[in-house]
Amino acid sequence: MERIPILQMGEFLLVTIQVDMHDQLALNLQEDLTDRISRTSARGVLIDISALDMVDSFIGRMIASISGLSRIMDAETMVVGMQPAVAITLVELGLTLPGVSTALNVERGMQVLRKRVAGR
């Protein structure tokens, strides 16, 4: 079955979404990630969506769920690299993803994650 790869970098997991996801693929990712967090005791998750040219309510919901689920499992989720046009569209759509942490790019997101994890 089609899967989006999850990379492990120390105590963090990195997911780079590069394909136009259909809904099942998004659901698989959500499942795989929670599974990996629990197996690896990862402290943080970076989801790089800089290659995504569209985020609709389904993908938005998946991002919010991953963020909420990971928090319960004691891992921080950072969504990084959202394109301006995507951000504007999401706001217009009414999906503001409250409670989801964001950063401009992977490097910045990683810095913030390190700081937050160290502070706990």
């Binding site: 136009d20 809904d23 040219d53 569209m54 985020v55 609709d56 309510s57 389904f58 301006p84 046009a85 995507v86 504007i88 569209t89 217009e92 759509l93």
Partner: peptide
């Protein structure tokens, strides 16, 4: 993908195109 292709062929601005494609995604679903 179809919506994106037609919209970019017609020279739609990126933000407007993204809005249209997102609307198409919601309605197709």
């Amino acid at each position: 993908q179809q919506a994106r292709k037609i919209a970019s062929e017609q020279g739609m601005r990126l933000v407007d195109l993204t809005k249209l494609v997102t609307a198409v995604s919601e309605l197709a679903r």
